[in-house]
Nucleic acid binder design. Structure first.
Lengths: 200, 200
DNA sequence: TAATGCATGTAATCGGTTACATGATTCA
DNA sequence: TGAATCATGTAACCGATTACATGCATTA
């Protein structure tokens, strides 16, 4: 998904500035599954403007630099719908540096492997808890953080997606926790067999 | 992980040509969690050659074009160890076009959403089965497919990683299957409430 | 005969990251 | 005083994808 489509998606939920779109992908409602940086958002918005998919309204502000509030045009909304309706996303498989590294676990010390996994488990649990908390707080229609609009997670899509995130992160943490010590022990055994004790 | 490191990783398991490295990432032992294309592998290998991290031996072949078999140097092995030992990979969160799209499920027809999820479930199950079969066949030391060396999945690292892949893909498929009909029904209800029945 | 596999490489292009530039305000 | 937040944008750079170019052998 290119950043242009991501911007259309963000704006489909309401008008916003480039800065606010960035926040949506950082800590706001769109915080998971995709990301976007300033360096890609701003050029994307100007291109969308050129193409007539968004309108921009300049707002003067006291002290702070002026805002440009972007709004979807009908064409922009259609373009976003088209992106959702077009050919389905091709199969996605897990990409992970850590998992790839762990294929070469025997090239690392057992302690290193254990630490890497432990750290990842903590990260995964934190992510899961974070999503769960946000979905719970913002599932009902009372005010929660500024970034995520009230009731957002009571909508079917976001609710489904949040549940998915929690489930997968928990599953990943559980697997790693359950198999961590066995892996470390096996590496120890392999190292004891071949005297590979080189540098590091 | 840049393709240079990926090539070092592949070569750490034995000498290979660029073509063979590609295959390892496609259907071979390194088939999951990372990928690499010809357009990145060949330039990466020449850079590694320039930097003295690999050696190349040209092999003439009858009919077919000549092969260049690459081999890690001591420096190359050290560089790979360094990549594994250096700073741990930063936290990774799930990236997924489909999941992002599903945040906007109400912008799609219920049928579309149902189909997307059904298709993804099938893909996930296939991936899981595929990994499981490969790990099972190549876990013992008798010959299996050419691409994956015998006994590969009896090594601790690959075994752990294969188990992870199976567990996560199954968990993802299970979640989607369990929540699919509820999501579709909720979208139907939402659509019935607001008369949003536009194009498509 | 057409597609696929073997085998290597280049070049155009693209999209995105990173860092930089600017600048006021507020909070610790 | 220094960091963080608000706010927009540009430019250099980088890495990777895609398509192209070549060419024989095998298989359907």
């Amino acid at each position: 998904m290119d950043v242009r489509t991501l911007c259309l998606a963000a704006l489909s939920r309401g008008d916003a500035t480039g800065y606010e779109i960035k926040k949506m992908f950082e800590t706001g409602p769109l915080a998971h599954f995709q990301r976007a940086s300033f360096g890609s958002i701003y050029p994307a918005l100007s291109r969308l403007l050129d193409d007539g998919l968004v309108l921009a309204e300049a707002l003067e502000q006291d002290g702070r630099p002026d805002k440009k509030v972007y709004r979807l045009t009908e064409g922009g909304r259609a373009a976003f719908r088209h992106a959702l309706t077009g050919q389905p996303p091709e199969p996605e498989s897990i990409r992970s540096d850590l998992l790839f590294m762990l294929m070469f676990a025997t090239e690392m010390t057992p302690a290193r492997v254990g630490d890497l996994i432990e750290a990842r488990v903590a990260e995964l649990r934190e992510l899961a808890d974070h999503i769960e908390a946000k979905a719970k707080n913002c599932g009902e229609a009372h005010a929660c953080g500024e970034a995520t609009p009230s009731g957002f997670f009571s909508e079917p899509g976001p609710k489904f997606v949040a549940g998915y995130g929690v489930a997968i992160y928990r599953a990943a943490a559980d697997y790693m926790e359950r198999h961590r010590t066995a892996l470390v022990r096996e590496i120890e055994a392999a190292r004891a067999a071949l005297p590979n004790m080189a540098a590091e």
